[in-house]
């Protein structure tokens, strides 16, 4: 590879294999949050960590090609709006945060009404927000040396 940005070839090869597995693990943690340990918060942190790993290993241009800053900002707001929208739509049935969907059979994936949808919203919000904050900490830095 002629690409000089980022770390060495060994790190890049390992990250190329493992980043998708980390993304898959984060998605599993988010989706099974109502059945097993996990949920929106840890899953979102793991999803954000996968992109931060890409950004550290390949340099920020490659990471921006996968997920640009504007896309991260849009995803962040979209997650917050999904969560707030679910909470507000409880008003149609009476009260704020009403669990209005069908509860389903226990111990199956699509159960527990609004809880999986809220988990997805929170996961998007936390992951995209952390990635955006990391980009802000590293890329937007104002470097004024020599004074």
């Amino acid at each position: 590879m002629n690409d000089r940005s980022g770390m060495t070839v060994i790190v890049k090869t390992v990250v190329r294999i493992s980043a998708s597995l980390i993304l898959l693990y984060g998605a599993y943690i988010v989706a099974y949050g109502q059945l097993t340990p996990g949920g929106g918060f840890p899953g979102g942190v793991i999803l954000g960590g996968a992109f931060i790993l890409l950004c550290l290993a390949f340099g920020k241009e490659t990471a921006f090609r996968k997920l640009s800053v504007n896309a991260a900002s849009v995803l962040d707001s979209a997650g917050a709006l999904i969560f707030l929208g679910i909470a507000l739509s409880g008003y149609a049935w009476g009260v704020f945060f009403l669990n209005f969907l069908n509860k389903g059979i226990p111990f199956h994936l699509w159960t527990a009404g609004i809880i999986p949808l809220c988990n997805i919203g929170i996961g998007l919000k936390v992951g995209a927000g952390l990635f955006g904050a990391f980009i802000a900490l590293t890329a937007f830095r104002v470097v004024k040396k020599g004074d």
């Binding site: 918060f41 942190v45 927000g129 802000a136 900490l137 830095r141 470097v143 004024k144």
Partner: peptide, 24 residues
Amino acid sequence: VLTSIVIGLGITILMVAIAIRLYD
């Protein structure tokens, strides 16, 4: 505590941002 941990991460990010600004 589950929510408090993630808030702690957000606060750490904000403090690091302020520290970098002061360093600059």
